[in-house]
Design a protein around this nucleic acid. Structure first.
Length: 685
DNA sequence: GAGTTTCGTATTTTT
DNA sequence: TACGAAACTC
């Protein structure tokens, strides 16, 4: 274990000898490096790698950390090191100790499934649902938020639906709708129980509750772990804290985080939690890292400036070890196509003339949705790219269809899966599917279900409906065969259902699913892992790394990422898209201070990804709208306040506005925002 | 009742 | 986009 590459503060943190530690590390100060070195250090000190558990929020972060620890040591030394997301860790515990947690057999459901169940419940409780203008999605959001933050339903309703107002009028309104919402949420819980479903939050909750109240459970689990290493501590929510808390009695907690990078409050995270670490954890220390190794000083200057404008005191000033570089540039564009053109041109120029690779470029967007035109432009210009944080493989409709067949074999009471599976077939719509599902739930075993299917729907291609299930049931021990065999039977129907983009988009996913399946020995494991593991980009999947698909790290391509998915990433040249009024902060925040400040941190995270060059694009039309007023969708005219734009008041010398000719006029307009402009910001296209 | 087409609408962020 | 609801046809 070589400590010479670490500075003295990092060394101090890595070789910490006390019980528990929180490392507060600003952006680019070596947070990931510290956690990696810590794991390697512990192993080199003789700790059994199997007794170290690294916890992260995304699968990618987990596998990256594990891989880098391995690279740090002789490969075999770190072989049993555990790294997983909070959810997949809990799943391991639930599977490993089914008796302890009372989880003999269960099906993990994702958000789509949650919504499907909630829709069923709303249908059954029309009286409550009728005049409640909340969609099933909204109800699930409320439910999940309340459980993650451990807030009461009333408080959650106030916070989410009434902008946290507390006046008499609001209190009355809440009193009125709360009982209705409660009936629906209880209905949802009932359904979950009946069908043995665990949603994402349940996975954490079941483990947390048991560990907190049962010393025996703590004893059993404590024999498994000595050190828990937590990445991105600022993003933990009260529920996750409940999960970690019991471990302070039985393990060493080693947490790293940065309050200025907390961007998950929508999931219940509260960055102030890191501030109370010392009070909540006995025998703990807090260390700080503040030397930035990533970026040039100019990039840190604008990032520091952004944080200074916040009413929240972060007490943070990043200082660059690397020194000066070039000033960040703001590119003012007409529209997103011009934005896309600018980025394409810059990348191509860097690639052909400036000796840079595609990989040196990172493009960050507030939302996945916004990168559409950019992706189109990249395709046109033949710029290779990958996206992080996009639609997920396992979430795509055709894969879910196939998985629904696997699910009913795994758990024949899986109502949602039966509905989906039956609806695939010709002649079966919502009504018939519901009727059949009702019958199937009465059957004792999957074999009975197969017999029932055969007996009832032999006409048309009815037989195939049973055959698919039978094929899977027969191949429970050979999942690849189960997938390939059932696909063979379903292909014709699926090809028809998705005929619009079957050949070039969907068809190829099924062999991939088969390869994924090969790695699992039981259906339950496979289904659960697929649900939890956002086996997102197939290129990056550790499971597929050894198969025919190359790993994305080996290829050269631009990365397009949402800012949320970009934590931990860094890049030579970084573009932050559409930093315009009403986008930063988003008009969705409605001026709610906590949300606005979170948006500020989102932008902060984005800016601090850049090593040498930071490009910020923005739309000139929204700048004009800024100085006038806007018509709300209720017809009300609401004046916009200039200070609700993060870059308002940015000192001129901190950035360079684009010098390209076609941007010059725009730059002038920004200096004189009140000038009447005939192209008043209305986009008639 | 099922299937098809069209239209509209809403799209922050993730496990 | 892309998904769902509504409108239309069989």
């Amino acid at each position: 274990m070589d400590l010479s590459e670490l500075n003295s503060n990092q060394q101090k943190a890595v070789t910490f000898e006390g019980k528990h530690l929180l490392v507060l590390a600003g952006a680019g100060t070596g947070k990931t490096k510290t956690i990696i070195s810590r794991a390697a250090y512990l192993i080199s000190q003789g700790v059994d790698p199997g007794k170290i558990q690294i916890l992260t929020f995304t699968k990618r972060a987990a596998s990256e950390i594990i891989n880098r620890v391995k690279a740090n040591l002789d490969n075999s030394q770190a072989k049993n090191l555990n790294g997983s997301t909070f959810h997949s860790w809990c799943n391991q515990l639930l599977t490993k100790f089914p008796n302890l947690f009372g989880t003999k057999s269960f099906t993990v459901i994702d958000q789509d499934d949650q919504v499907s169940i909630m829709k069923l419940v709303c249908g059954n409780n029309y009286v409550q649902y009728e005049d409640l203008r909340i969609k099933a999605e909204g109800l699930i959001d409320l439910y999940s938020f309340a459980r993650n933050t451990k807030k009461s339903l009333s408080d959650t309703i106030r916070l989410k639906l009434f902008n946290n107002l507390n006046d008499e009028d609001t209190v009355e309104k809440i009193k009125l709708i709360k009982p209705k919402i409660e009936v629906l949420l209880r209905g949802y819980e009932q359904k979950k129980k009946e069908r043995k479903y665990l949603d994402y939050d349940d996975m954490l909750l079941v483990v947390a509750i048991r560990l907190n109240k049962d010393p025996e459970a703590r004893r059993v689990v404590s024999s498994q772990y000595e050190h828990i290493l937590v990445d991105e501590m600022q993003d933990t929510n009260p529920l996750q804290w409940d999960l970690l808390n019991p471990f302070q009695k039985i393990c060493h907690l080693y947490c790293v985080g940065d309050d200025a990078q907390s961007i998950y409050s929508f999931r219940g995270a509260d960055f102030k939690n890191v501030h109370s670490f010392k009070e909540r954890v006995e025998n703990s220390e807090v260390y700080k890292l503040d030397q930035n190794y990533r970026s040039t000083q100019e990039i840190l200057d604008i990032s520091n400036w952004l944080l200074e404008q916040s009413p929240i005191e972060y007490g943070k000033e990043l200082i660059s070890v690397r020194g000066d570089g070039s000033v960040p540039e703001i590119i003012n564009v007409e529209n997103e196509w011009e934005e896309a053109d600018f980025i394409s041109e810059t990348i191509i120029e860097n690639f052909t003339k400036n000796n840079k690779t595609y990989k040196d470029h990172l493009i960050l967007s507030r939302s996945q949705y916004y990168t559409r035109s950019l992706q189109a432009t990249f395709i046109k210009n033949k710029i290779p790219y990958v996206t992080y944080g996009g639609r997920k493989f396992m979430e795509s409709a055709h894969i879910k269809d196939m998985v629904s067949a696997l699910r009913v074999v795994n758990n024949k009471d899986d109502e949602i899966a039966w509905m989906r599976y039956l609806s695939i077939w010709e002649g079966i719509g919502e009504i018939k599917a519901a009727r059949y599902t009702g019958e199937l739930l009465f059957q004792k075993s999957i074999e009975d279900c197969i017999d029932w299917l055969k007996s009832i729907i032999l006409e048309n291609d009815g037989k195939i409906i049973a055959d698919v299930i039978e094929t899977i049931a027969k191949n429970r021990d050979n999942l690849k065969e189960a997938v390939d065999g059932s696909f063979h039977l379903m292909e014709e129907r699926l090809a028809f259902k998705y005929r619009k983009d079957w050949e070039n988009k969907r068809k190829g996913d099924f062999p991939v699913l088969g390869i994924l399946a090969k790695n699992y020995s039981t259906l339950g494991e496979f289904i659960t892992e697929c649900t939890l593991d956002n086996a997102t980009d197939i290129n990056n999947s550790p499971v597929l790394a050894d198969s025919f698909i190359n790993r994305s790290e080996d290829k050269d391509h631009v990365i397009i990422s949402t800012i949320h998915s970009a934590k931990g990433l860094e890049s030579d040249v970084c573009f932050v898209l559409n930093v315009s009024p009403k986008a930063f902060p988003s008009s969705w925040t409605l001026g709610n201070i906590d949300e606005v400040e979170e948006e500020r941190r989102v932008l902060y995270v984005a800016m601090t990804r850049a090593k040498n060059q930071l490009f910020i694009t923005r739309n000139i039309h929204s700048l004009h709208a800024q100085s006038s007023s806007s018509v709300q969708n209720n017809g009300e005219i609401k004046p916009l306040q200039p200070e609700t734009y993060f870059l308002h008041g940015l000192p001129e010398e901190m950035v360079e506005q684009s010098t390209k000719e076609r941007f010059e006029q725009a730059a002038k307009d920004i200096e004189e925002p009140n000038k009447i402009d005939l192209s008043s910001g209305m986009d008639f296209s």
